[in-house]
Amino acid sequence: TYYTVKSGDTLNKIAAQYGVSVANLRSWSGISGDLIFVGQKLIVKKG
């Protein structure tokens, strides 16, 4: 599943919304830090 980052989103908010960890969200999407951008597509795998 892809999630497109919206204004005001954080990795914590997105992870909580999908019931996954921030570490997994980073790993799946190839992100090393906490910086995400509006319009960026993140990969989300539901448990």
Rank of each mutant, 00 (worst) to 15 (best):
T1Q: 13
T1W: 15
T1E: 14
T1I: 15
T1D: 12
Y2I: 13
Y2D: 06
Y2S: 09
Y2Q: 09
Y2N: 07
Y2K: 06
Y3M: 04
Y3F: 03
T4H: 08
T4I: 15
T4V: 15
T4L: 10
T4A: 07
V5S: 02
V5P: 01
V5C: 06
K6C: 07
K6V: 11
K6Y: 04
S7C: 13
S7N: 11
S7F: 13
S7K: 13
G8H: 06
G8D: 07
G8K: 05
G8L: 04
D9I: 01
D9F: 02
D9V: 01
T10D: 08
T10M: 03
L11W: 07
L11E: 01
L11M: 07
L11S: 01
L11K: 00
L11G: 00
L11I: 09
N12D: 15
N12G: 14
N12Q: 15
N12H: 14
K13R: 10
K13P: 00
K13C: 11
I14Q: 00
I14P: 00
I14M: 01
I14V: 08
I14A: 00
I14L: 07
I14H: 00
A15T: 02
A15E: 01
A15V: 02
A15D: 00
A15K: 01
A15M: 02
A16E: 14
A16H: 11
A16T: 11
A16N: 11
Q17K: 13
Q17I: 13
Q17A: 13
Y18W: 12
Y18F: 15
Y18I: 09
Y18A: 06
G19Y: 06
G19W: 05
V20L: 08
V20C: 10
V20R: 01
V20I: 15
V20E: 07
V20T: 09
S21K: 06
S21E: 08
S21W: 04
S21R: 05
S21M: 06
V22N: 03
V22D: 04
A23T: 10
A23R: 09
A23V: 10
A23P: 08
N24K: 10
L25V: 10
L25F: 03
R26N: 04
R26P: 01
S27F: 12
S27T: 12
S27H: 14
S27N: 12
S27L: 15
S27Y: 12
S27Q: 14
W28G: 02
W28N: 05
W28A: 06
S29T: 08
S29C: 06
S29D: 02
G30N: 12
G30W: 06
G30C: 11
I31P: 02
I31L: 14
S32F: 11
G33A: 08
G33H: 08
G33F: 07
G33N: 10
D34C: 10
D34G: 08
D34Q: 08
L35C: 12
L35Q: 14
L35N: 14
L35D: 15
L35Y: 14
I36V: 09
I36L: 12
F37L: 09
F37C: 14
F37A: 09
V38P: 13
V38G: 04
V38N: 06
V38W: 04
G39T: 03
G39K: 02
G39P: 00
G39H: 04
G39Q: 03
G39R: 03
G39L: 04
Q40C: 06
Q40P: 02
Q40N: 04
K41Q: 14
K41P: 05
K41M: 12
K41L: 14
K41F: 08
L42I: 12
L42R: 00
L42A: 01
L42Y: 01
L42F: 03
L42C: 03
L42Q: 00
I43Y: 10
I43V: 13
I43W: 11
I43K: 09
V44C: 05
V44P: 02
K45W: 13
K45R: 14
K45G: 12
K46Y: 14
K46I: 15
K46L: 15
K46D: 12
G47Q: 13
G47Y: 12
G47N: 13
G47H: 13
